[in-house]
Design a binder for these strands. Sequence first.
DNA 1: TGTACATCAGTGAACGCGCGTTCACTGATGTAC
DNA 2: TGTACATCAGTGAACGCGCGTTCACTGATGTAC
Lengths: 210, 210
Amino acid sequence: VSKPPQIPRRSPPRAPVTEGGQRTRAALLAAGVAVAERHGLAGLSVNAVVEEAGLAKGTFYVHFAGREAFVDALHQRFYARVGEAVAAAAEGCAPGAARIVAGIDAYLDACLENRAIKALLLETRSETYLTSTIAERERLFARLIEPSARALGWPSPTIAARLFVSMTSEAALVELEAGRRVPAARALLHQLVARPPAAHSGPRRARRAG
Amino acid sequence: VSKPPQIPRRSPPRAPVTEGGQRTRAALLAAGVAVAERHGLAGLSVNAVVEEAGLAKGTFYVHFAGREAFVDALHQRFYARVGEAVAAAAEGCAPGAARIVAGIDAYLDACLENRAIKALLLETRSETYLTSTIAERERLFARLIEPSARALGWPSPTIAARLFVSMTSEAALVELEAGRRVPAARALLHQLVARPPAAHSGPRRARRAG
DNA sequence: TGTACATCAGTGAACGCGCGTTCACTGATGTAC
DNA sequence: TGTACATCAGTGAACGCGCGTTCACTGATGTAC
């Protein structure tokens, strides 16, 4: 009796073991960045990526489970880089205005250096199946700001953090469109941080209760 | 001699002339809203829309030049509604903090009432071929804020207006996720408007020169 | 009143296209005996 | 040293699928004569 063919199939992609394999995987990611830069996330097809990289279509699936995994890998990479830069910049400062400002600047600089991916990220909301992982990573930045907001005594630190992240993201877009730093945008962010909202302005008036 | 068939082809879609035609066009747009609500912009295919509306695929092309024109029509509709609400709310106020606040509130309320479209709009950045028209419409809101920012003496009114629009948009998302008004988010926006950035904090120090 | 024609809206089968994915295969390199 | 086998990376033709769009057609309504 011949035993069933043991399902050789295609093994699920894992980190390449050969040097050549590592280079190929890196080349695919680099091609992804290039394609995204030119055609955005919508144009980031497997076809376009392998053509850009000069590889066969099958090779793509040697290294990535599919398009979704590929986009996620790009995303992860970008956030790792930016996250490191932001964390490094914020490291020295205690939670507070100076730390937010340091983080904002590091974030904006990192975006300028990875412009393709930043633009790509803005489009990511449309690919619904990815949103959970991606939204999570984005929330990380808000969580970086939150303690500072809390330390500054802002009334709604969680929401405030989120709004500030959104604003910083828009500032990054302004700079990407300009192709350079835009000091006016940064100054605005800095000043909004430095002159933060006070406690409730509503009926309650015991602002300096403590 | 037989004259050439005069190219009857398909006439380019224009406003329907019959009452039935108008109803059909409206039904397609309503179906588009429903589909967008469930599946987002990426799921907003012609197939899905006509199935939702219970019409033949050909009918779609009787009323719209194509998918792009359809999405644009949805977009236009939403902005018309929101724009009206915002303009009406801001109308009474002279440019200044009160006007921005009134506009922000009207915007947030309108988004809560048109949640499908608001969510859809967030994804619109990914469809590159539409961006020009859409980006233009979005800039309208920034232009609504700009004179107020200028009147308040903010250092970079154009950029400030854009950042505030982005923040308001994020606040709309917060509210859509919560499914209700989020007073904390609104209070934050109000306070940031009320305590705006002063003139330059840099080397120049003649803040109250005038 | 009857007939011919024009206009408008609606239909659904058919089309071509690009997409993501699969798979049987090749070939290089490493390892066992 | 030679041979057999395993592993890993790479290939490209082929597949099915859903998409946006087209088109010849139907049928209802209005208008001219």
